[in-house]
Write a protein that binds this DNA or RNA. Structure first.
Lengths: 136, 136
DNA sequence: AAAAAAATGCAATTCCTGTGCATTAGTCTG
DNA sequence: CAGACTAATGCACAGGAATTGCATTTTTTT
């Protein structure tokens, strides 16, 4: 994991720091997407802004994608192998549980192509399904 | 229009005030959904909180629906005739233009039904397509 | 080891939602 | 019509989050 991360960051001339490694580890421990606040809470001592910028850097390099599930704060999740969200943006469906408030990536469920009225030029799409998750 | 509004509000024991009428008129003048801030700007003198609560009241009574287009602030649009968003929530697709920043309702374009993994119990869905609108 | 570049942490700003409360306006009843 | 009641309004303020500027620290390069 560290090696993969190192390779990717090196390619883009971005340094692999302790902070970034920690954030990466934390993200890979999650089974659902987490918000900046939640990420912050999982560290004893941390700086919100640094985390914010770390996530931004990861996003820009296609390691992490952000999900707007409608809760106000965006949530972040690691991209799966082969995820191309840095190029094409969120293509898979997200599920937000209204009970536990968690948001899950469903990478195997792609957003169907919508035929829009003429002259609308779609570039990306965001589909969030809300309801109750298996656990709740 | 006024009569329809009056009828609906009367049914629910909600008063038809000058403010509410003005908000209703402003909303029906829009061809795209507007945010609270934009609504506020369209009045010379207005109180954000009153507008906020007016929109909330309208929403609760199925006159208006809100759209989370990912810009941070929810946008509001009049429901079409027969819209059942007070019961089933947003069923149609929204289009957000990244150039002019406007958000359009596409009431004729419904969100396709997604087959989710077992035990996920969907209740509502939100689909926002982003790109460039015909005007831009 | 010094210089340069990048990352970090702190402070502060801005924008938005949302609540409490006093005042105002509208409705109802005698 | 007047008084009582209820709902709507407007102001003040609190709270949460994104985002920027800048000084400091860390890392890399020379």
């Amino acid at each position: 994991m560290i090696k993969i991360l190192e390779t990717i960051l090196n390619k883009k001339n971005i340094r692999l720091t302790a902070m970034r490694l920690l954030v990466m580890e934390t993200l890979s421990d999650q089974r659902s997407a987490i918000s900046l606040s939640e990420l912050e809470k999982s560290f004893e001592k941390s700086d919100r802004i640094t985390l914010y910028r770390t996530l931004k850097t990861f996003q820009e390099n296609g390691l992490v994608h952000s999900i707007d599930d409608g809760t106000g704060a965006p949530k972040y999740a690691l991209c799966e192998e082969g995820c191309r969200c840095d190029i094409e943006r969120d293509l898979h469906v997200h599920f937000h549980c209204k009970v536990c408030n968690e948001t899950f990536c469903l990478p195997k469920y792609k957003i169907p192509n919508i035929e829009l009225p003429e002259k609308f030029r779609p570039e990306e799409a965001n589909l969030v399904v809300k309801g109750t998750c298996p656990k709740c």
